[in-house]
Simulated scan of single mutants.
Amino acid sequence: MDPTPPRNNAVTVADVARMAGVSKATAARVLGGYGTVSDRVREAVTLAARNLNYRPNELARSMTTGRSGTIGVVVGDIENPFFSLAVRGITDIARQAGFTVILTNSGENTETEKAAIRALLAKRVDGLIVSPAMESDVDHLEEAIRSGCPMVLLDRGSRTLGVDTVVADDGHAAEDITRRLIAGGHRRIAYLTACDTPDHRFRLPSDISTGSVRRRIEGFLRACHEAGLSGMEDWVRLGALTPAETQRIVTAMLTDKHAPTAIIASDSVIGLDVFKICRDRGIDIPRDLSLVSFHDADWTSVTTPPVTVVRQPVYQLGEKAAKLLVERLNGNGGPASRVVLKTELVERASVADIPAEQMSEARQEKV
Rank of each mutant, 00 (worst) to 15 (best):
D256C: 13
V213E: 02
T242P: 03
L241G: 10
R237F: 05
R201S: 13
R146L: 12
D199N: 15
G211H: 14
G219W: 01
D169Y: 12
R216M: 06
A244M: 12
A259M: 09
I182L: 05
D164E: 05
P150K: 00
R215M: 11
R187T: 10
T255A: 11
G157D: 06
E142T: 09
E142D: 13
S230C: 09
I249T: 07
R188I: 07
M232Y: 06
E226M: 00
T242E: 10
A168S: 15
V213S: 11
L192Y: 06
D256P: 04
G171V: 03
L181F: 05
R146I: 08
T165R: 08
Y191L: 09
P260Q: 08
G184Q: 10
H186S: 06
V163K: 07
Y191C: 02
L241S: 13
V236S: 00
L254D: 04
G239R: 06
E175F: 09
G211N: 13
Y191Q: 04
R215V: 06
T178V: 08
M151H: 01
G219N: 05
A144K: 03
S147K: 13
A262I: 00
R237N: 08
R203Y: 10
C195K: 10
A244P: 05
L204E: 15
E143R: 08
A240G: 11
G157V: 01
G157S: 12
T255N: 11
D176T: 15
V152Y: 01
V236F: 04
P243H: 10
R237C: 11
E226T: 09
G184K: 08
R179H: 15
E142W: 05
V163S: 01
T242V: 02
I208M: 11
A190K: 04
R237G: 01
R214I: 07
T160R: 12
D176H: 13
I189L: 02
I189G: 00
D256A: 15
R180Y: 14
G211K: 10
L161A: 05
H258Q: 15
G231C: 08
G219M: 02
H258V: 13
T242F: 04
P205Y: 10
T255Y: 04
R201E: 15
H258A: 14
G185R: 04
G157M: 05
A252P: 02
R214L: 07
A183F: 01
T165D: 12
G211I: 12
C195D: 08
F202K: 06
A252E: 14
F220K: 00
P243V: 11
A223S: 15
P150G: 02
Y191S: 00
L154I: 01
T197S: 06
G157E: 02
R248Q: 14
A240H: 01
D164M: 07
Q247T: 15
E142S: 13
L161C: 08
G184Y: 04
A252I: 03
G228S: 11
D176E: 15
A240T: 09
